[in-house]
């Protein structure tokens, strides 16, 4: 009986706070993406000829994001039937865009106009001790920022 109440409370809390945080995060992502729009990103290694002298510098951005109780529950149920786990899709989309943004922010602080050979890595962390436990995900973005020499 009390277990059920605790469970429903956690679900409700997870849903309420999780959805709110997600919407807020997406708003912030969109805003910052607009701000950093002039800083270009490419996954190509070959950098075109530059008119001005430039130098390269490795930049990276990473984020660890955790799933809320509600999504964890939905994903757990989904595991029984198989299929698309929509709860995780939005989570990872957020994490990835956040990581790219952080990389871009670092590049901007260095005075770069573009980042080349961008690579993205995703890893599940804090999953080791208990196999069943859904932990958190880390997404990392890294690339070479091109900085004009002044």
């Amino acid at each position: 009986m009390y277990d059920l109440i605790v469970f429903l409370t956690l679900i409700a809390l997870g849903y309420g706070f999780g959805q709110h945080a997600e919407r807020k995060h997406f708003r912030s992502i969109l805003e910052r993406e607009k701000e950093l729009k002039t800083l270009l990103c490419f996954s190509e290694r070959r950098i075109p000829e530059q008119e001005v002298p430039v130098q390269g510098q490795l930049v990276s951005g990473s984020v660890v994001i955790s799933i809320d109780y509600f999504k964890q529950f939905v994903a757990g149920l989904r595991n029984l039937f198989g299929g698309r786990v929509t709860a995780y899709e939005s989570l990872l989309e957020r994490a990835r865009r956040e990581a790219i943004l952080r990389m871009k922010e670092q590049a901007r602080d260095l005075g770069a106009d573009s980042v080349w050979n961008v690579r993205l890595e995703t890893a599940a962390i804090s999953q080791g001790a208990q196999r069943q436990q859904v932990g958190s995900m880390e997404v990392m973005a890294y690339g070479t920022a091109l900085i004009r020499k002044t």
């Binding site: 270009l40 490419f42 595991n79 029984l80 198989g82 299929g83 786990v85 990872l92 989309e93 790219i100």
Partner: peptide, 13 residues
């Protein structure tokens, strides 16, 4: 510039 696609899938029990 960058384009990406992702999906998360679970296999059934």
């Amino acid at each position: 510039g960058l384009v990406n696609g992702n999906t998360v899938r679970a296999k059934h029990a």
